[in-house]
Amino acid sequence: MTDYRLVYYSANRLNGTAEQKEADIDTILARSRRNNDSVGVTGALTFSDGYFAQVLEGPQGAVEVTFERIQQDGRHSDVHLLEFVPIADRTFSNWSMAYVGKAVEGSKLAGLGATTGFDPAKISGQQLFERLRDLLLAEQAVA
């Protein structure tokens, strides 16, 4: 069955201190990994001051159901769906949900905006996907 790739960005609505946000992200990642594993979805997530950006890959139905759940999550809003296309190969097949930005100077949040920063008004789904992929590869190289 053909896999699909979905790319979106959204306004993050996390509140609280940097530590609290970090904890929230951990919760989201833990849930995502467990859920995604069970339906064969993989992907990557990043977080900057104002935004989330995420790539989901997997069977069409599984991606649709997962996205519908994410969509209704109050921890973000203004979800902009950039791309939903069939793909030949998965890029993040090793990650049920990779988190991009961990390697940034010991802290998950410091300077992340600058590192992963993107101008959502201009970026295309393809570009956002490539950005996440490259950042992840760079982090792999560092680790």
């Binding site: 699909y4 069409q60 649709e64 209704q72």
Partner: peptide, 14 residues
């Protein structure tokens, strides 16, 4: 208005 206006995915369509 907010929630229903968010994008949907159905049968491969946005």
């Amino acid at each position: 208005v907010d929630l229903l206006g968010r994008p949907y995915l159905v049968a491969g369509h946005m």
